[in-house]
Design a binder for these strands. Structure first.
Length: 828
RNA sequence: GGGCCCUUGGUCUAGUGGCUAUGACGUCCGCCUGACUUGCGGGAGAUCCCCGGUUCAAGUCCGGGAGGGCCCACCA
């Protein structure tokens, strides 16, 4: 393994610009760890000493993290955000201690709809009531503030981010990457513009992609309405009677005997003076409604399919504000819902509404505005994905999904895609398209890669087409979907295509994200890397769950179950918060339990106290190599068990199972080290009745074991561990911080099964005596006159060897051993 | 309708087929043991969701069922 701190200029002494300042500069003032002050002191030290800076010149292997750039659109962050980010921060710290040159950037996703929506709500405006310039200005101001909110939280949590690597998705680098991505895909024929049906958000006034939708159960009515076919009446069932004016055909199932005779006939639309053809199609469900359905352009996705398949005329009667237009005749100007009421009313009066049934059905709404989407038609930009489904599923199989089962969600999403990815948005605050159009010919004029970034509204193309002046071109005013940028974060981090591109950076090592955005961030990034680089974007994808309230419900401000992360940190400290975040398996949702944060705080205190005990008893300690010969059986017992803990923690962390690693070291620390070993060695370190060598062996064991445990705890609880390290270990270990020291190495030579057995027997004896005293309601320091230990010939000699320890530990005046088959402790 | 995950003392949770099922919180009893009362010691508390199968052996594997959560589809 590479040494984590191999380039330490303090040791090497040849580097003219030391990366780390001498360790003396971290002055720990308080004698006891007090998180309110100590955490700040340490964070400030880490920052000054550049502990977490990515080392450009290092030859160590790089571990690069494609940090999820959070939306800069929240005033407060809840504990779930803190949990998710903490979980991969554990991994960053672990990898750093394993000797990797960790590349841990941060990005702020400030462009796009989430920010625009946030600004609109906060300032009670909407994009149509302000100018493009003013709106963008407001967005920039707000993202500045929210960026600071995030930075404060991440710093408060002790994240080992290298802030030099910060990027903004509205910034120049990200803009260049997004525009370059556009040009590359266009040239490769994977990106096109098409005038086609679109999903429209009537509130946000923009097109949306399939991934921007959610569905909700809504109450509605199924209306059976009379259509006339000649003199005959037929019934069609619909939930959207307001679209009657947009009806272009009626459909029935080809096998449906009720309607077969209608083939080739025409039906007269009620309320309107129009006739539409009656056609058979297999996609009609005869069981549903009346088995006869009207096709409107457009009520839903099925209508779009029928419209294309049967070459039907187009009759759009809804405008982009969600109101009916002139084609709706008397209903022009009414909003969809009002029009529905009015039409129902009119149908009733004319006895054309036969029945009405209340139903609950799923409706697509816009994720950002919560409004039901409408299907309109307009020219938009798309990235091809529908014809590449299988390839996109296959390439994703080359990524190591942690946990594995999350890949299934990805596969399902891709399999079920029904639209190419629509990337144009009729909004202001986003990356502009590097595109102009010719007024004369309508041709598309693209920017050259060398002139990026461009804003076609302000800039002009370098090379105008022949016979064109500046007056002959018009800019593309749409902006890109925010995911156009978020999907190229690996390329942004790698400075893809620039002169100082980071070599060998793609694919990146690891990509953390929560499971709700598999269909967006994971999917779109995989699309981009596959199309641009013929590769996967990252080797590993680490998928966290969500933080929930204590009842397992999603946190939301309106429900009032929102726990603000900063408040928890203020009350219990960052380490305690991180402890809570580490209690859940990767990928699982975690209900917020204050008691777990309290347990974390107790653990911090316990570490501080145990370290204090060790420190008080290290008088005269020299950090000399530890040899097995000088150790007592009890020391060997501890160190052997420590090795098992190290092995297990390491394996778990390698597998991204930070929760299991934490649990292992936590158990060892409380139940082996504190509960037993510290009690076992007291009589030795207090220095009475024993020779010096025994004390030294105990000191060395304490030192080694505590340091190893601190290191195992370090990724989870960076503050208390480095606090102890700075005070007690730095002078011997010389690394500027525990966080750039080596992860403990598993040393098989310390495995000692015989000592483990003997030590375990000692634990049994101690337990027995503790129980005896507890039942007699005696203090533990009460002296016992006589104790007889009965054991078989295998274990007896080794117990006799530690007779003095047993006497001292258990406060026994007269200890005797007797050979017998059954192990027994007899107290007289 | 399809898929994924989950179901272990009052609550949360660990548990690669193998002796009396882990830990935390809570609860009860006790202890100011020379690091720690945000502590220490001890106790009580579990038909490991149900049924069937594989196995010498099942909380663990297989099949079926029940309940919960999430994702997707359905949207006339």
């Amino acid at each position: 393994m590479a040494k984590a701190f191999g380039c330490n200029p303090m040791i090497v002494g040849s580097n003219p610009t030391p990366r780390f300042k001498p360790y003396e500069e971290c002055v720990i003032m308080t004698k006891k760890f007090d998180f309110e002050n100590s955490e700040k002191e340490l964070a400030s030290f880490w920052s000054k000493a550049k502990i977490y800076e990515f080392d450009q010149s290092s030859s160590k292997q790089v571990f690069s993290i494609d940090t999820p750039p959070p939306y800069a659109s929240a005033d407060h962050l809840h504990v779930g955000h803190g949990m998710h980010y903490s979980q991969f921060e554990f991994v960053a710290r672990y990898k750093r201690m394993r000797g990797f040159n960790v590349f841990f950037p941060m990005g702020f996703d400030d462009n796009g709809l989430p920010t625009e929506r946030f600004v609109e709500k906060k300032h009670k405006i909407n994009k149509s009531k302000t100018t493009r310039q003013e709106f963008i200005k407001l967005c920039l101001e707000e993202t500045e503030k929210t960026g600071q909110t995030y930075k404060d939280l991440f710093n408060a949590l002790g994240f080992s981010i290298d802030w030099n690597l910060l990027y903004h998705t509205i910034g120049k680098t990200a803009t260049v990457a997004s525009q370059k991505s556009f040009l590359d895909l266009y040239k490769k024929g994977l990106l096109y513009k098409k005038d086609a049906p679109i999903m429209w958000d009537t509130v946000l006034q923009t097109t949306l992609a399939q991934a921007d939708l959610e569905d909700v159960e809504m109450k509605s009515h199924f209306n059976n309405i009379v259509f006339k076919v000649g003199a005959k009446e037929v019934l069609i069932g619909t939930t959207r009677p307001e679209l009657i004016g947009a009806c272009v055909a009626l459909f029935y199932h080809p096998d449906d005997d009720r309607y077969k005779e209608l083939k080739g006939k025409f039906a007269k639309i009620p309320l309107y003076d129009a006739e539409v053809p009656i056609l058979p199609d297999e996609h009609v469900d005869p069981e549903k409604g009346t088995g006869l359905v009207m096709c409107c352009t457009f009520g839903d996705k099925q209508d779009i399919e029928w419209w294309q398949k049967h070459n039907l005329p187009l009759k759009i009667i809804i405008n982009k504000f969600g109101k009916l237009n002139e084609l709706a005749g008397p209903y022009e100007g009414l909003k969809v819902r009002d029009a529905r009421k009015q039409i129902i009313q009119d149908l009733k009066e004319k006895k054309l509404l036969v029945s009405q049934k209340e139903i609950v059905h799923a409706v697509n709404i816009s994720e950002r505005s919560g409004i039901e989407i409408e299907f309109l038609k307009s020219p938009q930009w798309y990235i091809k994905v529908l014809d590449k489904k299988q390839e996109l599923i296959d390439i994703a199989g080359k990524i190591d999904w942690k946990p594995k089962h999350m890949k299934v969600r990805y596969d399902h999403w891709v399999q079920n895609l029904q639209w190419d990815w629509c990337i144009s948005r009729q909004r202001y605050f986003g990356v502009p398209f590097p595109v102009w159009y010719s007024k004369k010919t309508g041709e598309i004029i693209l920017a050259e890669p060398s002139e990026l970034p461009v804003d076609p509204i302000k800039d002009f193309p370098k090379n105008l087409p022949e016979g064109h002046t500046k007056e002959d071109i018009i800019p593309e005013k749409d902006v890109m979907d925010t995911w156009m940028t978020s999907s190229v974060t690996p390329q942004i981090n790698a400075r893809w295509g620039s002169e100082d591109e980071r070599e060998g950076f793609l694919p990146m090592s690891m990509h953390p994200q929560a499971h709700d955005i598999i269909r967006t961030w994971a999917f779109y990034s995989i699309v981009k890397s596959y199309y641009h680089n013929k590769n996967i974007p990252w080797k590993t994808i680490m998928i966290s769950g969500h933080g929930q309230d204590s009842n397992g419900k999603k946190m939301s401000k309106s429900k009032g179950n929102f726990v603000v992360a900063q408040e928890v940190i203020k009350k219990y400290g960052a380490d305690a918060f991180r402890y809570w975040a580490s209690t859940v398996k990767l990928g699982d949702d975690l209900p917020y339990q204050e008691k777990d944060v309290v347990t974390g705080k107790k653990t911090v205190k316990k570490i501080d106290n145990a370290a204090n005990f060790v420190s008080l008893n290290l008088e005269g300690f020299k950090n000399e190599p530890l040899t097995k010969q000088e150790l007592s059986t009890i020391d060997k017992w501890l160190l052997s068990k420590l090795q098992r803990t190290i092995k297990s923690c390491t394996q778990n962390f390698e597998n991204y199972e930070y929760s299991k690693s934490k649990q292992e070291v936590d158990n060892f620390f409380w139940n082996t080290f504190c509960d037993y070993y510290l009690e076992f060695v007291k009589h030795r370190v207090y220095g009475e009745n024993l020779e010096k060598k025994s004390k030294e062996a105990a000191q060395k064991t304490l030192y080694k074991a505590l340091l190893a445990q601190l290191k195992l705890f370090a990724p989870i609880m960076p503050f208390i561990t480095d606090y102890v390290y700075q005070r007690q270990f730095k002078e011997f270990e010389k690394n500027p911080s525990i966080h750039v020291s080596d992860w403990p190495e598993y040393e098989a030579s310390f495995i000692d099964e015989k000592s483990e057995l003997t030590g375990d027997k000692l634990v049994q004896i101690v337990d027995f005596i503790r129980k005896y005293k507890s039942q007699k309601q005696l203090s533990l320091k009460e002296e016992l006159k006589k104790v007889i230990i009965k054991a078989d010939e295998k274990i007896l000699p080794s117990l006799e060897e530690i007779a003095l320890d047993i006497k001292q530990i258990c406060k026994i005046n007269n200890l005797e051993f007797v050979q017998g088959d059954e192990f027994e402790v007899i107290i007289n």
